[in-house]
Simulated assay, not measured.
Amino acid sequence: MTKGLQMSEVTKYYAEGSNRIAALDHVSISVGPGEFVAVVGPSGSGKSTFLSIAGALLKASEGDVKLNGYNISTLTAKELSNIRLREIGFIMQSSNLVPYLNVLDQLLIVKRMSGKVKREDKEFAAKLLEELGLGSKLKSLPEELSGGEKQRTAIARALINNPNVILADEPTASLDTKRAHEVVGLIAHEVKSRRKAAIMVTHDERMLEYCDKVYRMEDGKLSLAEMSRSRGVHV
């Protein structure tokens, strides 16, 4: 069975008056365990639709989406909800932390959504936060954290259910250069060490050096960008 995320000939149509517009046009991509890929492209190119379909938030009009070898294209809304909770970790532009929950509880609320919180869940959450440099912040509220600390909390939250796929949507949008490198470097480290299949949609070309492959999205079509010898990217 093929692990990770595979999309094959995925197309998404939207109705616009009497016309049918293809937001995604026969997109194919395969991301395996331990692989960190980036998708770049201008606004309106189809990146958001692509990420929504990869994250089981939206169904494709045509084509197949496979997660760990299972075709999720035909699942019900409830089944897709379970897939999102157990198999996919999301890291968004803004950390989307719950204002009244401390850092530890930001992770435990995700565990609570999938059942009762056990002692080993609390231990794993604390260990994860320690690993991401937040060991002294377990009881801190979001308003007491820096932008980088908020995003590190979001990374930990994405990993708490031990999902197979990590999807990051512009994770450096609100960060300065130093914090941006820190956050994407951490994502790359966790992807490699925990053998996750990860996709980052970004406008931030400074961050592409952390990625194994870079794809370009334009007019709903996805193509592999050329990597230069210096690991720069021609996009």
Score class of each variant (00 low, 15 high):
Leu97Ala: 12
Asn71Arg: 14
Arg179Asp: 12
Arg157Ser: 11
Gln106Tyr: 07
Lys118Phe: 06
Asp25Ile: 03
Lys178Glu: 14
His26Leu: 01
Leu67Asp: 09
Glu182Arg: 07
His203Ser: 11
Thr202Asp: 09
Pro33Ile: 09
Leu51Gly: 10
Met1Leu: 08
Asp64Gln: 14
Gly69Asp: 00
Arg216Val: 07
Arg152Glu: 04
Asp204Arg: 09
Lys127Glu: 13
Cys211Tyr: 04
Ile53Met: 11
Lys66Met: 13
Gly32Tyr: 06
Ala154Ser: 13
Ile155Arg: 09
Ser193Ala: 12
Ile109Gln: 11
Asn82Tyr: 05
Glu79Cys: 05
Leu224Val: 07
Val165Lys: 05
Leu145Pro: 05
Arg152Asn: 02
Ala168Ser: 05
Ile91Gln: 06
Ala180Phe: 08
Val103Leu: 03
Lys192Glu: 11
Pro171Ile: 07
Leu107Lys: 11
Phe124Leu: 13
Pro171Ala: 05
Ile91His: 03
Val40Ala: 10
Pro99Gly: 08
Thr202Glu: 01
Ser61Asp: 04
Pro163Ile: 13
Glu182Asn: 12
Ala158Asp: 05
Lys118Thr: 13
Asp176Met: 11
Arg179Phe: 02
Lys66Ala: 08
Ala56Glu: 08
Glu120Ala: 09
Val10Glu: 07
Cys211Lys: 01
Ser28Ala: 06
Gly147Ser: 13
Ser8Val: 08
Lys192Cys: 02
Met7Pro: 02
Ala126Lys: 14
Lys221Arg: 15
Ser230Thr: 11
Leu80Trp: 01
Leu134Ser: 04
Asn71Tyr: 06
Glu35Arg: 04
Lys116Ala: 15
Asn164Val: 10
Ala15Ile: 09
Met113Cys: 11
Arg157Gly: 11
Val37Gln: 01
Lys3Thr: 10
Leu145Ile: 12
Met207Gly: 14
Pro99Phe: 02
Gly63Pro: 12
Ala54Lys: 02
Ser28Asn: 06
Thr202Trp: 09
Ile72Tyr: 01
Pro163Glu: 11
Arg179His: 11
Thr74Asn: 14
Glu87Arg: 15
Met92His: 10
Glu79Lys: 14
His203Arg: 09
Gly17Met: 03
Ile166Glu: 06
Val191Lys: 10
Ala168Val: 08
Ile166Asn: 10
Asn102Arg: 07
Asn96Cys: 03
Lys59His: 09
Gly55Phe: 01
Glu209Ser: 12
Leu145Ala: 13
Thr76Ile: 06
Leu75Asn: 03
Gln151Ile: 12
Gly135His: 01
Val117Pro: 09
Leu101Val: 05
Asp212Cys: 00
Met227Lys: 15
Leu5Arg: 06
Thr2Gly: 06
Ala125Thr: 06
Arg179Asn: 15
Glu79Ser: 09
Gly34Ala: 03
Ala125Gln: 08
Arg119Gln: 14
Leu128Lys: 08
Arg84Ser: 09
Asp25Glu: 10
Glu209Phe: 03
Met227His: 12
Lys47Ala: 01
Lys192His: 07
Thr11Gly: 05
Val233Gly: 12
Leu222Arg: 05
Ala23Gly: 14
Val37Phe: 03
Ile109Tyr: 04
Ile91Thr: 03
Thr76Ser: 15
Ile199Arg: 01
Val10Cys: 04
Gln6His: 07
Arg152Met: 02
Thr76Asn: 04
Val184Cys: 02
Tyr13Ser: 10
Lys66Val: 05
Ala15Leu: 02
Tyr215Trp: 04
Tyr13Glu: 14
Met113Asn: 13
Leu132Gly: 04
Ser81Phe: 00
Ser8Glu: 11
Met1Asp: 10
Ser140Phe: 08
Glu35His: 07
Ala56Gln: 10
Gly55Tyr: 02
